[in-house]
Simulated scan of single mutants.
Amino acid sequence: MTFEKVEVCVYGAAVLCPSCVNLPSSKETYDWLQAAISRKFPNQPFDITYIDINEPPSDSEKAEFAERVIEEEMFYPVVVINDEIVGEGNPKLKTIYAELEKYGYKSEE
């Protein structure tokens, strides 16, 4: 299988999701995912981006999805890998790892 570099997007907000009390903040989840993916798949590059749903970037695709998170009342953070939602509210590493493996990422554990 060939390797394809992916983009992991973490959509969230500074204020915790009302249904996500006692869970890490969106920014904490972003930091945690960045470290966890780097450990699981060392020397396999990926891009990870944090997008504040209340202050979306000028990138129209990301801004539209940020608006969708709000309109559809998704539990955030919402983790998206190459346009596929892989986690919402309390994302699971196993699910995220499985999605990365579809793109040729190999665990070195």
Rank of each mutant, 00 (worst) to 15 (best):
K94R: 00
A66G: 04
P24W: 14
F41N: 03
F41P: 03
N90S: 06
G87C: 14
F41E: 00
A66S: 05
V78N: 08
T29E: 15
E84M: 13
N90L: 03
N90K: 01
V86W: 05
V21L: 08
E61H: 09
L33K: 12
P91Q: 00
E64M: 04
A36C: 09
P45Q: 10
Y103P: 00
K27C: 10
K62T: 03
S19N: 01
V15A: 09
P18G: 03
P42A: 03
Y97I: 13
Y30M: 13
P18E: 02
T2S: 15
L23I: 01
G104P: 06
F46K: 02
Y103D: 07
V15D: 06
I96P: 09
V80E: 10
R68P: 04
V6C: 07
I48R: 01
D47M: 09
Y97P: 01
A66Y: 02
E101K: 02
K94F: 09
S58I: 02
P91D: 05
P18A: 02
V10N: 15
P57N: 12
P45V: 10
C9L: 15
V69I: 08
E71L: 14
I81Q: 06
G104T: 10
P42V: 02
I48K: 06
F75Y: 09
D52T: 05
D47G: 02
D47S: 03
K5H: 10
T95Y: 07
T49P: 00
R39I: 00
E55P: 03
E4G: 09
I70Q: 08
V79G: 07
S107C: 08
E84S: 11
W32K: 12
I81T: 03
G87L: 05
V10E: 14
A63K: 05
W32L: 08
T2M: 12
A14F: 08
E72L: 15
E108N: 13
A36K: 14
P18M: 01
E84Q: 15
P42E: 04
E7H: 06
